[in-house]
Structure formats: C-alpha cells, structure tokens
Design a binder for these strands. Structure first.
Length: 186
DNA sequence: AGATTGATCCAT
DNA sequence: TGGATCAATCTG
C-alpha cells in the first residue's frame, strides 16, 4: 500500500497532523536520486500566539508561507548551514507548520549505519541526506514537486508515541515547555 | 563549552 | 546599514 497523502490531510489541527506523520514516509526525487524515509520525529508550530513559531512576530516575507494553504513545504536556513524542512498545516491565514526532525532511511543514499538501520536523528541531517534546500520552499507536497509524503500502511500504536518539549526554543518562555515534539523509538 | 555560517529582521 | 538572532551539528 502506497498512498500519497492528499493536500487536505494537512488542513486539520496541527498537533493531530504531527502525531499522524509518525510512521509515514517522506519520499523525495532529487538530483536523479530517489529517497524514502520513515518519519520518526516531528515538532508542531501552531498558530500566531506560539512564541516558538516564526509566525509569532507577524507576517514577514520569510514566514508568509506559514500563513498560506496547507500542504506546502516551508524550508529555511538556520545557523548559516542547515535547512529545516516543514510542512504547512491548517487553514489559510492561520500560521502553522510541522517540522520534520528525524527518520529512518528505507530507500536510497548512503549514511551512517546504526544497528543495521540508517538513522537520521536531527532536522539538519535529514535535509542534508535528502539534498533538500530552499529551492523546494513553497512547493506543494505532491509528486510533481519532487517531495511528498506517503502512507505505506505502517501502523503506529498510540502508546508508542512519545512527547517532549521542542528542541532549541528555550527563548519561548511558557511555550517552550509545551509537549509539541512527538517521536517514536528506533 | 565553543566554533561554525549566512539569511533575516529590526533598531540605530 | 549594522548587529543580534537563530526550530543545529560537530568536536573536544
């Protein structure tokens, strides 16, 4: 079973989407290579009041895509060297997105192997592996854009989903403590 | 704990 | 226009 998630999948509450993305497959065709990664770690950035979100200080040229239609990629550069891959969620004009932070490679490429699995633990490593940069930004998560998400029938038990505060957002005060990071063990 | 690295944003 | 900031990663 390989079903490409329709764009309407992303026009739902952001926290639910974040949880539902665990066990789904991020598939990319870039530079004549095909990669597939089972998503194991995500973070939600939900709404204009989320102080950890780029949208918290209002609409700018950079974060405008977060206010746009659901199912588009939001890619940006951090610390001058790492691209972060997010998928825009929720209705138009409501700024929200899910950051894809980690996964297990099932097709393509070569990387560090741990316990027989190729682990991408960290959002910068994931985009490096998939050769994603901001040229993907603002495109839709569908086949013709080169990157999309599939349901391949993997079931994740609700009891296997772990939560924690988000990484690297200590500045966000009370929002930094919210359990908006979801992950499953490798 | 410190260096890396550059786009973005806002105050000077 | 300049400088502070930053959803990270590596090395030690």
């Amino acid at each position: 079973m390989r079903k490409v998630l329709p764009l309407k999948f992303f026009n739902r509450p952001t926290l639910a989407i974040a949880r539902d993305l665990l066990g789904k497959f991020l598939v990319c065709k870039t530079h004549d290579e095909k990669f597939a990664v089972m998503i194991t770690e995500v973070e939600a950035y939900d709404g204009p009041h989320d102080k950890a979100s780029h949208a918290h200080r209002g609409r700018t040229k950079r974060n405008e895509i977060m206010f746009g239609e659901a199912g588009r990629w939001y890619v940006y550069l951090i610390y001058g060297m790492y691209s972060m891959l997010n998928i825009v969620t929720g209705p138009k004009d409501y700024p929200a997105a899910v950051l894809i932070r980690g996964g297990i490679v099932t097709e393509g490429g070569k990387w560090k192997v741990k316990d027989g699995k190729i682990i991408l633990n960290g959002p910068g490593k994931l985009t490096q592996f998939l050769k994603i940069d901001n040229t993907l930004g603002e495109r839709r998560a569908e086949k013709k854009s080169g990157c999309w998400i599939e349901n391949r029938g993997v079931k994740i038990k609700k009891s296997d989903i772990k939560k924690s505060p988000r990484i690297g957002v200590e500045y966000a005060k009370e929002w930094a403590e919210k359990p908006y990071r979801f992950y499953i063990d490798h």
